[in-house]
Nucleic acid binder design. Structure first.
Length: 577
RNA sequence: GCCCUCGUAGCUCAGGGGAUAGAGCAACCGCCUCCUAAGCGGUAGGUCGCAGGUUCGAAUCCUGCCGGGGGCACCA
């Protein structure tokens, strides 16, 4: 375990026991990062009252019993009763050497859980928008991170591939002809296809009638209709995949688990719930009423599982989905990386599934709420209102802007190399922008800020990694060959080393709290620490070969943590920038 | 009306019981004969929405209020 706070906590507990008796040995040592030292121990303040002694006296008594000489260069009582700990440079150096010898860089393997993750979930024949971008990017980062922690992640792309709009879409596809240029829009500009179908539906009573009939045929399993439906899906998934590829997202066709997957189970679910009295017919619809869910005027809010026209909504498919994930996939945790507005609905689905016995207490469903993306007016950014932003256009523009910068900054490189870098930087910038803010907070969408290439951004982290690589390129050495020994003499080295040791803890936190932005914050601070080190501590120019070897090792460790961390986020690190 | 969520520097956001509340952007001042200046160092900028409460200690926990956003029966 590379993270120093584990060891410090152990030592402080032992000290507490020695100073105040065994019954306090299990007290919270309250080790925290400190702005006045490497760490601070806050235990004395919390224990002062319990012991009936002044906090500073408690701190002094604890200090007298602490055995930290091998780890800390100084331990002192400070302020009202804090203990400030500063780690020994030699100890830190040894820990970094340990990190370099560890191919997991201090990330512990956790007890294996099966974790289906529901994310991305775009709709067939529709453009992916900024909302999809966020669930896709956040979900993918969680999938990568949990996998790295040793879990069995099952990606579930719950695409919208069923429902009444398909009558209209199929009729439109039939009219424009399969293989036509119009049909090809499904791959490149799905909204154009959808809107054309919609326009016909709204403008022609005859078309609308045929569309409705087509829905019936689709549900009845009419072979021709089914074939056309599959064609729609094939074209749409080609579009999704092209976006995923551009975004460097790990989703593939193997992860498709669309709504239609559960069609055959829906009637059975309804019958079962109705027979057991969990669902009742109300105003013609089959509903589940749950205690504690009331809406307007105190009226109970139902989870509708069968509409009054006999059709099924997403409540029913969501129940089928959760049952499948428990029964067939043997899930331990189920992640729903879905928009925050759906929180109530999901709570009701979970509660219904629990009531039906499909979701045992041992299985934890978690809604990873994705905050709405707002326009500059502070209102929700919808594709309908205002100028819709096509995801494809957004990604292309990100790469274009990066291209302009790379072309200008690195005219020495050939065109292909520059294009490759621009792609990694542009896409990385967009993904990092989505990942670096808390997933449940709403944020104001701003092209310029998202695509900015300075500050707390993906490109800043990529640049830090590129600078390390540049050092090794210049040295003609491989990072893997830089193994130390690590001797720390400069403050910037000390700070960098300390930072490096925190990686495993942060990754574990991300897996636990499901908050990738914590990893972003960590990596940004690591990159900042490296930048300061880079400015103040010449690596190749170091005269003392021992110092040079040590700094190379610190650089190598930084590179590995940065690249690994960025990889967990789904962001690539270019070789040079 | 009920429920969820947010309110922290001019802007975008971290921080979710501990010291003088942080970062980026924007502003201002410095730094390329030296491993990539997409960088580094510094200055300035905040009654943490308001009011109570709990606590030795509250931006953080509790209650109320104000303000923004969202949700609340057949679109998913």
């Amino acid at each position: 375990m590379a993270d120093p706070s584990h060891l410090l906590a152990e030592r402080v507990r032992a000290g507490l026991g020695a100073a105040f008796g065994a019954e306090l040995a299990d007290a919270d040592p309250a080790i925290r990062p400190s702005q006045f030292a490497d760490y601070q121990v806050n235990a004395a303040l919390a224990l002062a009252k319990r012991l009936g002694r002044p906090p500073r006296e408690v701190a002094a008594a604890l200090l007298a019993q602490l055995q930290l000489d091998d780890v800390c260069a100084s331990v002192e009582v400070s302020g009202p009763g804090f203990l400030n700990l500063t780690l020994r440079d030699e100890w830190l150096g040894g820990q970094v050497e340990g990190l370099l010898a560890d191919d997991r860089l201090g990330v512990a393997r956790e007890e294996r859980q099966v974790i289906p993750i529901d994310y991305s979930a775009p709709n067939v024949a529709k453009e992916m928008h900024v909302g999809h971008l966020r669930t896709t990017v956040v979900g993918d980062a969680l999938a990568r991170t949990l996998e790295h922690l040793g879990h069995d992640v099952i990606r579930q792309n719950h695409i919208g591939d069923w429902g009444t709009p398909f009558g209209m879409l199929i009729e439109h596809l039939l009219e424009v002809g399969e293989g036509s240029k119009e049909a090809g829009l499904l791959r490149s500009d799905p909204n154009a296809f959808y809107q054309a179908a919609r326009a016909k539906f709204d403008g022609s009573a005859d078309f609308a009638t045929r569309s409705r009939a087509r829905v019936v045929a689709l549900q009845a399993g009419d072979p021709d209709t089914r074939r056309l439906w599959r064609e729609l899906i094939a074209l749409s998934t080609a579009y999704f995949n092209s976006i995923y590829e551009q975004l460097d997202v790990t989703l593939t066709d193997d992860d498709l688990a669309g709504e239609s997957t559960y069609n055959d189970e829906l009637a059975g679910i309804c019958d079962d719930l109705e027979r057991r009295g969990i669902a009742v017919v109300d105003e013609g619809a089959l509903c589940v009423f749950l205690e504690g869910y009331t809406g307007r005027e105190g009226k109970p809010v139902p989870l509708i599982i069968r509409k009054s026209d006999g059709g099924y909504g997403y409540g029913t498919t969501d129940l089928a989905t959760i049952r499948h994930r428990v029964r067939e996939l043997h899930a331990d945790r189920i992640l729903y990386v879905i928009g925050a507005p759906q929180h109530l609905h999901l709570q009701m689905v979970y509660a219904t599934a629990r009531k039906a016995g499909w979701l045992p207490d041992t299985v934890e469903p978690v809604h990873v709420q994705i905050g709405n993306v707002l326009g500059s007016d502070g209102k929700i950014l919808k594709t309908r209102s205002g100028a819709p932003i096509r995801l494809r256009a957004l990604l292309d523009e990100a790469v274009e802007r990066a291209t302009a910068v790379v072309d200008q900054a690195r005219s020495d490189l050939d065109g292909d190399t520059r294009a490759q870098i621009a792609h990694q930087v542009g896409i990385g910038a967009v993904k990092y922008a989505d990942l670096s803010v808390a997933h449940d907070s709403e944020y104001v969408f701003d092209f310029d800020r998202m695509l900015a290439l300075q500050g707390n951004t993906g490109p800043y982290l990529q640049y830090a990694a590129a600078r390390v690589r540049s050092i090794f390129r210049k040295a003609g050495a491989e990072p893997a060959s830089a193994t130390g020994p690590v001797v720390i003499r400069h403050e910037a080295e000390h700070t960098l080393a300390l930072r490096l040791l925190g990686f495993g803890r942060v990754v574990a936190q991300v897996g636990d709290a499901l908050e990738p932005h914590r990893l972003c914050t960590y990596l940004f601070e690591l990159a900042q620490s490296f930048m300061a080190f880079y400015e103040h501590c010449p690596v190749l120019g170091a005269e003392d070969p021992v110092v040079r070897a040590s700094r190379l090792a610190l650089s190598a460790a930084t590179l590995r943590v940065l690249v690994q961390g960025l990889d967990l986020l789904g962001v690539q690190a270019p070789d040079q920038m």
